[in-house]
Each structure stands twice: as structure tokens, then as C-alpha cells.
């Protein structure tokens, strides 16, 4: 087949749409679902701007065919905000000044989110590994690492209380 009707669950909503064999998941998220929080940088897996969570795991959506994502669950940056309230990781990025131009931020936040879902107490080196596939041309990473560890701290506090 060169075209297929697929079903995607994106940020909790079901979508049914016809995709071409050569459409990537990134193409569909941005151009068909108009969820433009997910960015296109290199389109070849190097920059991480297109990071989404596919079945809970961070992947480069530019290297996933839309057709192979049929029946799967996707979370994009838009899906982190619940009832108008930002996620802890997003808040921490703002508080720590970890955003400059913002192009890398959606991917960065999702990589961080995936890390913190598995590990509430990451070391600095674990944080750096988690975001090694997300390039930032502005911040120099220091504030991003700080933001992620501060989000982790907040999550630990919430869990305790």
C-alpha cells in the first residue's frame, strides 16, 4: 500500500487519518494535526527538536513513519499542559531561565519528562545522558540541567507530602 488509514491517539485524543507511505510521524503531527509545538530541525535524528513520546518513550518523530505508528499513543509538548496548567518540568524551565529562543525546548522538556517518569532522583550525568540527543544552540545547557534537577526535586517533594 502507498496510502493507509491510520488511527493515532495523540495527547489523549483519537485521530483517524489517511497518510502516505512517505509521511513521517513529524509531518503528520505538524502539518495534519497542526500541533506545531513539535519542531523540525534537522529531519534526520541529530537535533532532537522533533522529540515526542511514543508509547511513553522519547523518539525522534522525524525518523518514524506515520504508517508504522498506526494504533500507537503519542504525547507531544501540547499534551503536557493539563487544564491550562503547565507541567512541573515546563515550570522549572521557565523558573530557571532554561529557555532562550525556545526552539529546542519542546523536545528538551519531553526528554526530561521521560527521564523523570523513570527516575525521580537523577544524577547530573543521568540528566546529561537523557538530553544528549537534544541540541540547544542558545543556552549552553547549564540552566537546562538545573531546571531538570529542580523539577525532579519538586516531584520528590510532592510525592512525599
Amino acid at each position: 500500500m502507498i496510502q493507509k488509514r491510520i488511527q493515532l491517539k495523540v495527547n489523549g485524543e483519537e485521530y483517524k487519518l489517511e497518510v502516505k507511505s512517505n509521511d513521517t510521524l513529524l509531518d503528520v503531527i505538524r502539518d495534519r494535526l497542526s500541533l506545531t509545538g513539535t519542531k523540525r530541525g534537522c529531519d534526520t535524528g541529530d537535533c532532537g527538536a522533533c522529540t515526542v513520546l511514543l508509547e511513553g518513550k522519547p523518539v525522534n518523530s522525524c525518523l518514524v513513519l506515520a504508517i508504522e505508528a498506526d494504533g500507537k499513543e503519542v504525547i507531544t509538548i501540547e499534551g503536557l499542559t493539563k487544564e491550562g496548567k503547565l507541567d512541573l518540568v515546563q515550570e522549572a524551565f521557565i523558573e530557571q531561565g532554561a529557555i532562550q529562543c525556545g526552539f529546542c525546548t519542546p523536545g528538551m522538556v519531553l526528554s526530561a519528562k521521560a527521564l523523570l517518569d523513570e527516575n525521580r532522583n537523577p544524577t547530573e550525568s543521568e540528566i546529561k545522558t537523557a538530553i544528549a540527543g537534544n541540541l540547544c544552540r542558545c543556552t549552553g545547557y547549564v540552566k537546562i540541567v538545573k531546571a531538570i534537577s529542580s523539577a525532579a526535586e519538586k516531584m520528590r517533594k510532592i510525592r512525599k507530602s
Binding site: G45, S111, A114, A130, A132, G133
Partner: peptide, 9 residues
């Protein structure tokens, strides 16, 4: 090998 995003695929 690559990044976590790459290794997940």
C-alpha cells in the same frame, strides 16, 4: 550508540 531517542528505535 546515538541518543536515547535513537536507542529507543
Amino acid at each position: 550508540l546515538g541518543s536515547i531517542q535513537v536507542r529507543n528505535r
